[in-house]
Amino acid sequence: MASPVEQFQVQPLVGGESAVAFTNSSLWMVISAVAVTVFLMASMRGRALVPTRMQSLAEIFYDVIANMIRDNVGSGGRKYFPFIFTLFMFILFCNVFGMIPGGFTVTSHIVVTFALAAFIFIAVTIIGFATHGLHYLRMFFPHGAPLWTAVILIPVEIVSYLSRPISLSVRLFANMTVGHVLLKVIAGFVPALGIAGIVPFVFLVPLSALELFIAVLQAYIFTILSCVYLNDALHMH
């Protein structure tokens, strides 16, 4: 029987071990991006005044992200809307496509989630300094706190600020990895138990539904936390 972690194996399809090798991970990134594009373009093709089902779905995605930015960032976040929207759709499709049997979950790799989180962290920090200048350093020492608490507060705030990309990336990576491992382990019992394998099989059905839910939820959480960090950079706290 295959190991439960074999599903995470990255295999080069073209280019061997070079830095630009096209792997199964790259393939599923491309599939997700193409799916996002095709879904949006095809469903909006009619540009109908009264939307079709697919068109309303595309519009719902648009509205959800637009509302998320309006509620969490405010009007200053409008120009980051395309980025946040791309981030959400990409993570969502990568997460959900990871549920396809025989597929590959791009977001179950810490290097991918950390690259995204690090990019957001760096971008948000640059936006913060660009908006507030050196005043952005006040982030690490809240207004109204007694001066002597600076000794404790500043290191704590710095650690909490620096841990943002780590928590953001580890949350997504861990959720995707653990859920898929669990599914694989239980699925392994099905053939092993013979006729009694029906029991873990029945258990797999709600678990798969739960995994699907987590795939959507984690995409949402990753996106909304990005919005929160962006809001901190624009308005401080």
Partner: peptide, 14 residues
Amino acid sequence: TYFAPQIVWLAIVF
């Protein structure tokens, strides 16, 4: 081994 290609392709695709 495959950290670099993943980051590179993530950047390109994104």
